Each structure stands twice: as C-alpha cells, then as structure tokens.
Simulated assay, not measured.
Amino acid sequence: MDYAVAALVDIDDYMASEQARGRSWARRQLQHADQVVRAATRSRPGATCRPQPPEEWLVLLTGADPDALMSDAAALAEEVRACMVRETAWTATVSLGPPSLAGGGTAEHDARLANDYKLVLGGDRVIAPPPPARVPLAPPVRIEQELSRRVRAGDHNGAAGLLAGWVDRCAREPDVDPRTLRNWLIGQLLFVVDVANRSRLTDGSTDWVEACARLPIEDIVSVGDIHERSYLHIWLRETLGRLMPPPPRRDVLALAEAYLAEHYTDPGLRLTTVAAAVSASPFYISHLFAEERRTTFLRHLTGLRLQHARRLLSTSPLPIDVIAARTGYLSAKALRGAFRRHVGCSPTEYRKAGLRPCS
C-alpha cells in the first residue's frame, strides 16, 4: 500500500513585494524560486513538482512507509526554506499534509488546510498538520467605537489600518484558528458596511439591499481565500476604498479649521492632534494649508491665538500672564515672543497704543 504526502511551497508576501518592486522583478525572482523547488524535488526519487501560479508549488512524495514520508517531507521543507533565502529575495512557507492513501486525492487538500494556518502563524516556517484546538469565542479587543469614527469621517485608509492592526492582534491570541479569525473579521466588515451605509428603511434599520450593492457579499466571502496577512492588508485598503470614497479635500480642511477654532487655546495642541481628530494624515493637512490657504498649520494656529490676545488686550485689563494662559501660551514670555515676531511690538506696547484687533 502506497501513501502520499503533499508539501505546498508558498512564497511569503508575494503580492506586497510585487506591488513594491514591480512585476518584472517578481518574475525574475519566481524563476530563481522555481529552480530552488525543482532542485529539492529532483533529489528525492519518486517526488513530483507541480507549479501553482503565480507563487506556489505542490510537491508530492509517495512511498510505502508513512513515517518515512513525513520525515522526508519535513527535510525537504527545511531545505527549500533555507535555499529560498539564499537564492532569492524572498522567504517561503512550506505546509505539510498528513500521510494519506496515494491516488485518493486528499494529499493536496490536506496541505492547503495546513497552509491556511499561515494567516494566524505568519510566514517563513514549516506548517505541519495542526492539532485540534480550543477556539476562543470572542476577539481579545473590540474596536467598533474607533472604527465607527473613522468610517463616518470617510477615512478609509485609517479604517483599513485599524482593521489590519486588529487582525494582527487577534492572530496572536492563543488557540485562534483561521476560520475563527475570518469570522471575526467578516463581522467587522459587516459593521463597516452598516456604518458607511446612509440608506435606512422606514423603521430605521439598514437597507441591506442597497448596502450589499456597494459591497457585494462575494467580496466579503473572498476573505476565505486569503491566507497571507500582508495581502489581507492590501485587500482591506482596496475594499474599504471602494466602500468609503474619501471626503473632498476642502471638507478635510474645513474640519481641521473648525477643530482649531474650537481648541486653539489648548497649549498642547499639535498638528498630530488635529490630524487624529479629523482622521487625516498630518502631511495631508499641512499640504492643504499650503495649497488652499497659502500658509502653514503653525501660522494659522498662531494667528488664531494672537487675534484672541489682541482682543483681550484691547477690551480688558487682564494681566499679560492671564491673557497668555487664555490664548494657548504656556507663559507670558512665550506670548511676548510671538507678539514681537508677528505683530512687531510687545503686548504692553500694543495695549498702550490703544490698537484694535482686525476683525
């Protein structure tokens, strides 16, 4: 009686590296990887190798002794991993199925079931058939509140990044398996669809017919085909980008200006604070101030603070240190420095001159 063991060789982070370095580079690396797998296969009598484009190879080993087959498959897996690092710019994961009767057609299926665990274990390893595990009932952390904020702000990159980080955290949970992790993620995706969908039925519930037109169910189901977290991160960005068109750039700027107008008296206010509040990157907000307002974030903030300071100097007898505290400066000295740089005189001179702030 002959047995078969399948070893599935899977290049790690293939899609991410192809996007970063180009298709031509990836094609050349695949040629080197193919040579590595075929060389390891040729050294084992009776072994066969079948490429699974674009970045997988199925190696099938057959023999009469199942224990010897598993030992040989494990040795092949370690050889391929070591040679892949040496001969290519990649690492590889090799997943092994348990011995099965040759010709039964289950060897490849079993190897792919093992390879599915790459989603939770990560790459650059040999994955053997996992033992049954106790499955946790709930994810270790919940992110719905922050996820809702980013979705409502139209920040699809921020929402995708939050989900990607959450998936990475959940994957480290003891005993979690790929099926459970995907079910948790699908729950979050349905939550995103619900929050992003503006259409409601007369009773206030979500119009799921309209919602599923924006994110078809088959797109969500396709998560089940992903076993690489780097590709899952790419998929999340693309999927949420389709589901959540970004807000117009002027809306982002208006949100930033409104936040500044409300919080400029906070001496700890920073560009990063505003960026987080409006779900945009600090670089993008700086770019909008430069392009749309011909100024900088700091100049705009300073203008708000000094406008308030001039008003208080003209309309109240408050001491300079009190005015500094009320306008976002940590000390009277800091206010005096800003006044001299931007107004051309000290706060005291401004008050004595009886000047009035511009409206």
Rank of each mutant, 00 (worst) to 15 (best):
I285L: 15
R142T: 07
L163V: 04
S24N: 10
T202Q: 12
C49G: 00
D2L: 14
L181P: 02
A254W: 10
P66R: 01
E108H: 03
L313G: 01
T315L: 06
Y264E: 06
D67L: 06
R27E: 05
V135H: 05
A7E: 01
I186Y: 10
L181E: 03
A92R: 00
I220V: 13
D67C: 09
V195R: 13
R125Q: 11
A211L: 04
T91W: 06
H300T: 13
R81G: 08
S230V: 05
D177P: 03
D266W: 06
L355F: 08
D168H: 13
T93P: 02
G303L: 12
G224V: 13
R44K: 04
W208Y: 11
L189P: 02
N183Q: 14
S43P: 02
A82R: 13
L288G: 04
A33H: 04
L181A: 02
L185R: 01
D10V: 00
G122D: 03
S95E: 03
D266I: 03
E56R: 00
V36F: 00
A213N: 12
S281I: 05
L232G: 10
E218T: 11
T272F: 02
F339T: 05
D124I: 04
P245Q: 04
I320C: 15
D225H: 04
R326W: 10
A171R: 05
L121E: 07
L96T: 00
P216S: 09
Q19T: 14
V322E: 15
G63R: 03
V167S: 01
A102I: 02
G303W: 14
P45E: 03
V36D: 00
A68M: 07
F339C: 12
I323W: 08
M70D: 06
A338P: 06
E146M: 12
R150W: 05
P357G: 05
